[in-house]
Design a protein around this nucleic acid. Structure first.
Length: 286
DNA sequence: AATCACCTCAACCGCAACTCC
DNA sequence: GGGAGTTGCGGTTGAGGTGAT
């Protein structure tokens, strides 16, 4: 079993940094023939590289729509938001940042944001201790209100509703799975009307986030499309990852404030919204 | 000026997902 | 349906750059 490696190491292939000539050859070849067929591309283009290497070079460096220069503050904020939502799904994150590559974002995260999180995490856990000294990056400005380290990730591989888990409460009330499923609002409803289901004993949108045990026992796999992601990204997540913030948000939220999508009326209660949950434990990864 | 330590980021590697037959 | 081949993704590495001493 097992397939042959993409490119064996003993074929006299070039490795390491690309030369300007190689870049030119690759760019011209793709210009004439288009992307794809990476495995055969090096032979056809006359490059002593493996297909993988060509693909990577093209995608991360040679592509004409690559955006050069520092990550802007806006981009950084978007990265942080998306990372909260998606975790280390760099390609998905990159997909929301035109001109940026997954590799670039991953590097940026690992070298810049990740470190800052570590520093902030340390300073959070030990309030009196000063964070270790770190050279601030010019383009960066930490947002102290955002607790980046508390990542709750939604796995977007779930593309359709495939699985429902009954909350214990529903079972206690004697509801069947079918009843709960039928009572559950669509995600669209959830996004546009946080009040849906709030007063229903079935608690279809109540992802129980018990302060003590973090239980979230109801779950629906859902479609994560562009519209949903857009809505998601317009939400200020910081309050959802910060109990204090959540409390304040809850206090501020009124029933008529439906414009605050997903900010339920009481984020600390058992009626926490969909995203404040450990969805990833449940979403089917198939 | 020389050396060291640290940082950045392009490139590599291994694996999983996907596609084709 | 299953196996083989291909593509894409995420983690890791290391060369080169830069600042500190």
């Amino acid at each position: 079993m097992g397939r042959s490696p993409c490119c064996s190491k003993d074929e006299g292939l070039n490795r390491g940094a690309w030369t300007a000539m190689e870049d030119k050859v690759l760019t011209e070849y793709i210009g004439n023939h288009g992307e794809g067929k990476w495995r055969n591309l090096p032979k056809r283009a006359g490059l002593k590289r493996c297909g993988k290497s060509c693909r990577l070079r093209w995608l991360n460096y040679l592509r004409p729509d690559i955006k050069r220069g520092n990550i802007t503050r806006d981009e950084e904020e978007l990265i942080i938001r998306l990372h909260k939502l998606l975790g280390n799904r760099w390609s998905l994150i990159a997909g929301r940042l035109p001109g940026r590559t997954d590799n670039e974002i991953k590097n940026y995260w690992n070298t810049t944001i990740g470190k800052r999180i570590q520093v902030e995490g340390r300073s959070c856990s030990d309030g009196n201790r000063r964070p270790t000294q770190e050279k601030p990056k010019p383009t960066l400005s930490p947002k102290p209100s955002t607790n980046i380290s508390c990542t709750k990730v939604v796995r977007t591989k779930a593309s359709r509703c495939t699985k429902v888990v009954l909350p214990h409460e529903s079972q206690k009330f004697g509801y069947s799975t079918e009843q709960v499923v039928n009572a559950a609002p669509t995600l669209d409803q959830a996004v546009n009307n946080p009040m849906v289901g709030i007063d229903d004993p079935l608690l279809p949108m109540s992802f129980l986030d018990d302060e003590n045990n973090n239980s979230c026992e109801f779950l629906v796999d859902f479609k994560m499309d562009e519209n949903f992601l857009s809505d998601f990204l317009n939400v200020d997540f910081s309050v959802l990852y910060n109990n204090e913030g959540a409390g304040k948000a809850a206090a501020a939220a009124t029933t008529e404030d439906t414009s605050n999508k997903l900010h339920g009326p009481d984020l600390r209660s058992s009626k926490a919204p969909i995203i404040e949950s450990e969805l990833d434990c449940w979403l089917v990864d198939n």
